[in-house]
Simulated scan of single mutants.
Amino acid sequence: MNLAIMDALLNPQYWLTMAANHPSFWALWLALLIHWLLPLSANYSPFQYWQQYALILADQVNQPTDPKRQRKLAGGLALALMCGTLAILLIATRELVWFRPLFDALLLWLALDWRNIDTFSQAFAYAIEQHDKGTARALLANRVNRETESLSIVGLGKAGAETLLLGTARHGACVIFYFVLFGGVGALLYASLVRLARVWSPSRLTFYPFGLAVARLLNGLDYVPMRLFALLFALGRSPLTHLKACWQQGQRWRTPGPGWLLACASSRFQLSLGGPAIYQGTKTLRTKIGSGVTPACYHLLLLRQKLRVSMLIWIAFSALCLLIV
């Protein structure tokens, strides 16, 4: 019996038959192929209209003169309105399309932004190597809410490493995680929430406490996939040491999911991450992670290489899950 099972597993025809019976498997690989060869530019992404509408809606319901409790309630209702409407539209459209796997692949392609993060990391590392602070600040400003004009090379290295780590996880690993669970609709809804959380980020005084609802929802959705991705990132040399760092230091970060990933990367490459950040002229105290060196060009390239390998393993496991389920 064991020999028969082994022969079946080693037979390519067996895997092709399984893949044919699991259309989500093909949708995943089709979306990844298109995304890597033809990444969606920010200038052509539908998320720019999503974010513009979010700002228009916030201008109407988020008034600085309103009580804090009312602004917090308005943020929750605005979140339910935007994401609820989008979910109904996507689910209804999915029921009408003639070939669902192609529709799911299209939604996943729209949701992914891993290739652009990878391109950003290469350009940013080169700017750091050349000590071109102007270019590095401009590249970083397109990816984060914090102020970048006052960042030194040391600050840019830290911010760039954090952006690379969390960007790859959110725009790559987490999107694929929710695709496996809920298909293209789940992947696009998660990606839409990530963009919404940036626009309504409570780190901006204008959106505090209006943006707390979306920030907390995103933190909850990040909790499981970010930690799983951190465990995958820890594989290699001395994995127990990195897992210990995840547990000890990652717990102290304000969001436990991203905290695990930052702590794991800090332990693996002996980096110093975290620390204070400035948002709209206000200095925010953040937990320091690690006690190593400040990320330089060399470390950014090492992080990029490790994240690529981790993402490939993550994709392989995700595809396997789609075949098994």
Results as ranks from 00 to 15, higher is better:
M1P: 05
M1L: 03
M6R: 07
A8F: 12
P12E: 12
Y14M: 05
W15F: 07
T17H: 09
M18G: 14
A19M: 14
A20I: 05
A20V: 04
N21E: 13
H22Y: 06
P23V: 10
W26H: 12
L30Y: 09
L33S: 10
L37W: 02
L40G: 07
A42Q: 12
F47L: 13
W50D: 10
A54C: 05
A58S: 11
A58I: 03
D59F: 00
N62D: 15
N62M: 11
T65E: 09
P67C: 07
K68F: 07
Q70E: 11
R71P: 11
K72N: 08
A74L: 07
M82Q: 10
G84P: 02
L86K: 03
A87S: 07
I88L: 13
I88N: 03
L90C: 07
I91P: 00
I91S: 11
A92E: 13
L96M: 11
L96D: 05
W98Y: 11
P101G: 10
F103Q: 08
A105K: 09
A111D: 01
L112H: 04
L112D: 01
W114H: 15
W114V: 08
D118V: 13
S121G: 07
Q122F: 05
A123S: 11
A136T: 04
R137Y: 06
R137H: 07
L139N: 02
L140M: 10
R143L: 13
E147Q: 15
T148P: 03
T148L: 09
L151P: 00
I153D: 12
V154I: 09
G157T: 05
A161V: 06
T163M: 10
T163W: 01
L166C: 00
G167I: 02
T168I: 14
F177Y: 15
V180R: 03
L181Y: 03
L181Q: 05
G183V: 11
G184P: 02
G186R: 10
L189E: 01
Y190P: 02
S192W: 02
V194S: 05
V194Q: 12
L196Y: 01
L196G: 08
L196M: 13
W200S: 12
R204Q: 08
F210H: 02
A213S: 13
R216H: 12
D222S: 08
Y223H: 15
L228T: 00
L231E: 09
L232T: 06
L232M: 08
F233M: 13
A234T: 15
L235G: 12
P239D: 05
L240S: 09
A245M: 08
A245C: 13
A245V: 12
C246F: 10
Q248A: 07
Q249F: 09
P256Q: 14
G259F: 03
W260M: 04
W260I: 02
L261T: 01
L262T: 14
A265K: 01
S266M: 08
F269Y: 14
Q270E: 06
G274D: 10
G274A: 07
Y279I: 09
Q280G: 13
T282G: 00
I289M: 04
I289T: 11
G292E: 03
L301C: 04
L301E: 04
L307H: 05
L307K: 04
L307P: 05
R308P: 00
R308L: 11
S310Y: 03
L312A: 10
I313R: 06
L323K: 07
I324C: 06
I324K: 03
